[in-house]
C-alpha cells in the first residue's frame, strides 16, 4: 500500500515540541553548560573544559555507585519478574476473588515513594519496628542502620513489596487476553501444566514482560526516594546509588560542575539502555 506523506502534519505536534523544549531541552542545555564550567555562586562561571568529565570517569566513587545500581537492578529483576509471573498465574480468572486480588495488588502502587520509605524505615527498626523486633526475637542479628547486608536486604525487600504488583498486573492482563481455544487444544493434546506455561502462556506474555522489564529496570536504575528515606545511602556508602550520589554532590557539596558532568553521563547511560529496550520491543513487533 502506498502511504501519503504530508509533512504539514508536523505542525500538529508543534505545541508538544514547545512543551518539551521548555521542560526538558532548555534545562538539559543548562546542565551541559554547567558541566564544562566551575562556579562558586552569584552566577559567576569559570571555564573548566572537559575536566569534570575526566574526573567523574576516573572516579572510583562513580563506578562504585554504578556497580551498586546495576547490582540492585539485576537483583530486583531476578526476584520481581519470576515472582510476578507466579502470582499472576495463581490469581483467579473469574468470581469475587478477581476484584479483591486486583485491589490488593494495586494498593502498594498507590502509596507515594517517600511514604513507602518511611513505612519500611519504621518496619525494620530493631527498637519499635515489627520486622526488626521479630527478627531479634528469633535470634537473628538484624540492624539495617549498622550492617550493609541488612541494609541491602531491607532495600530489596522494600522494592519487591512496592513494585512486584506492577509485574503481576501486567502479566495478569496478558494472561486473561489468551483465548480459551489455546487451553482447549492443550487439554486435547494432554499437555502438562508446565507445557501449557512454556508453549502457550510464556510466548503470549512476551510483550507485557518486555514492558515490565523495561519499566522495572529503568525505574530501579533511577531509584532515589525509597533508599534515601530508609538508609540515607548508608551504612557508609553501601546503598548509595547513582541518584543519591548525584544529589549529595550537587546539593550537599555544591559541586555543580562535577554534578552536571555526572548527570550528563548518567543521562546518556539511561538513554542508551532505553533505546536498546525500545529497539528490542519494536523489533519483536516487526517479527509478529
Amino acid at each position: 500500500m502506498n502511504k501519503t506523506w504530508n509533512n504539514k502534519a508536523w505542525f500538529m505536534v508543534l505545541p508538544m515540541l514547545l512543551l518539551v523544549l521548555f521542560s526538558a531541552a532548555i534545562p538539559l542545555m543548562t546542565v551541559v553548560n554547567y558541566s564544562v564550567q566551575d562556579t562558586f555562586g552569584n552566577n559567576v562561571f569559570f571555564w573548566a573544559g572537559t575536566e569534570w568529565y575526566e574526573q567523574i570517569l576516573n572516579s572510583r566513587r562513580f563506578w562504585d555507585a554504578m556497580g551498586r545500581n546495576l547490582a540492585f537492578s539485576f537483583i530486583i529483576l531476578a526476584i520481581e519478574i519470576p515472582l510476578g509471573i507466579l502470582i499472576a498465574l495463581n490469581m483467579p480468572r473469574r468470581g469475587w476473588g478477581v476484584p479483591l486480588c486486583l485491589v490488593l495488588m494495586a494498593l502498594p502502587l498507590l502509596i507515594p515513594w517517600n511514604v513507602v520509605g518511611t513505612i519500611w524505615q519504621v518496619f525494620g527498626r530493631v527498637d519499635i519496628g515489627l520486622l526488626g523486633r521479630v527478627l531479634e526475637g528469633i535470634g537473628i542479628d538484624y540492624n539495617y542502620v549498622r550492617d550493609p547486608l541488612d541494609a541491602w536486604i531491607t532495600v530489596i525487600l522494600m522494592d519487591v513489596w512496592h513494585w512486584t504488583s506492577l509485574v503481576v498486573l501486567l502479566c495478569y492482563a496478558g494472561l486473561v487476553s489468551i483465548p480459551d481455544a489455546y487451553y482447549q487444544a492443550a487439554r486435547i493434546d494432554g499437555a502438562s501444566r508446565f507445557a501449557i506455561f512454556r508453549y502457550i502462556q510464556l510466548p503470549k506474555l512476551r510483550r507485557v514482560l518486555t514492558i515490565a522489564i523495561l519499566l522495572r529496570f529503568m525505574d530501579s536504575f533511577m531509584i532515589y526516594t525509597e533508599p534515601f528515606v530508609v538508609t540515607g545511602g548508608g551504612p557508609g556508602n553501601s546503598t548509595t546509588f547513582l541518584s543519591i550520589d548525584l544529589v549529595k554532590m550537587a546539593v550537599g557539596q555544591f559541586d555543580l560542575g562535577p554534578a552536571a558532568a555526572m548527570s550528563i553521563i548518567y543521562f546518556l547511560i539511561v538513554l542508551l539502555l532505553s533505546w536498546i529496550f525500545y529497539t528490542v520491543m519494536t523489533s519483536h513487533e516487526g517479527e509478529r
Binding site: 564544562v36 564550567q37 552566577n43
Partner: peptide, 15 residues
Amino acid sequence: FSWMAWTLPTVAFFG
C-alpha cells in the same frame, strides 16, 4: 539567558 551559563563552545555544540 545568562542564567543558562552559555559559553562559545557549548553554543557551537548545540548550534
